[in-house]
Design a protein around this nucleic acid. Structure first.
Ligand code: SF4
Ligand code: SF4
Lengths: 158, 158
DNA sequence: TTTAATCGGCACTAGTTTAGTGCTCTTTTC
DNA sequence: GAAAAGAGCACTAAACTAGTGCCGATTAAA
């Protein structure tokens, strides 16, 4: 029912934390890496799940990883260059809203029977685009700035 | 992953169909009832699931039901007075986005451990409001009018 | 060179949710 | 009274989610 997974929440928590760390540092300084363990020590989340989320974020190109001792993760870009859409997409795939989101493959893998006569497919696809636009418009920077309105819907700053 | 349930889709299909029926009728005429069976004969959806969806819509005050032979359902209001938010809310509950949506009860039933230090709760709550606003702004009328943009985001008609 | 920290990948279990069905009861028209 | 229709309850199977285990690869440090 329109809910993010826990993995996504954990990933977001880590990202916001990293964004806050970056904000407390001079802009010129290269961001230092922080290990999954370190993040897990700060927030009471299952460390292993957190690591899973971070891995996905690395695969999605949002985090860069360094292995070995003293290794860890860091943001691949500045926080205002990372959209929530990217993050969610990396962690749990793009939002589908309907079952027939991957429209091309839907008919191939015996998708929805209703599709040929479905009266809601097209409108919902547009609505999905609207939601997606909302997600794309929210930056990690905005999420980390707790006092701000991340959606830009209720303030004039959008 | 941000997907509507099948029950919701079936309910929406039925509602859009009813809205289209209503649109093809003079505004003064009282809407006639249509049975779950009749709708199920038109769209290739599991009839039983469809009935389940219609039941929920009746309980949510979106549909009025008439029992007995010649019975069925009809919209309780005109299609432009019914928002997608209401519909989704009736069919699968309000969107939560995070696990700590029912914030009051969350701490009581041993909710999320992260809550006291969660850096994403408040921003995501606002984002949820944004999504909800989007859903509230889409009327059944707009959904049924297939050529229109239901979100009002991409046209000047919003 | 050994050790330990760290990321990376695969697989697995248990719980929850979703999709769908079955059956019975009540209401209402014919 | 028979048949059509909604209302309620309960149930099963499949899918997804949350969380864990294990081990290999990489790298800085001792
Ligand atoms: S075709 Fe219609 S019913 Fe089928 S998955 Fe798409 S939106 Fe849902
Ligand atoms: S408190 Fe934070 S981590 Fe916990 S459910 Fe809410 S948003 Fe998710």
């Amino acid at each position: 029912m329109l809910r993010l997974t826990k993995r996504t929440e954990y990933g977001l928590i880590a990202l916001v934390h990293m964004a806050e760390l970056a904000a407390a540092r001079p802009a010129e300084a290269e961001a230092e890496v922080i290990s999954a363990r370190a993040i897990g020590d700060i927030f009471p989340v299952p460390k292993r799940m957190l690591a899973e989320a971070l891995k996905h974020l690395q695969q999605g190109g949002i985090l860069e990883s360094t292995r070995g001792v003293r290794g860890g993760y860091r943001l691949s870009r500045s926080a205002d260059q990372i959209s929530l859409g990217e993050i969610v997409s990396a962690l749990e795939g793009p939002p589908t809203l309907t079952s027939c989101a991957g429209l091309g493959a839907a008919s191939a893998d015996g998708g929805c029977e209703v599709e040929p006569v479905c009266p809601i497919r097209s409108p919902l696809a547009r609505l999905r685009t609207g939601i997606w636009t909302l997600f794309e418009g929210v930056t990690l920077q905005a999420l980390a700035d707790r006092s701000a309105d991340p959606t830009g819907l209720f303030s004039a700053t959008g």
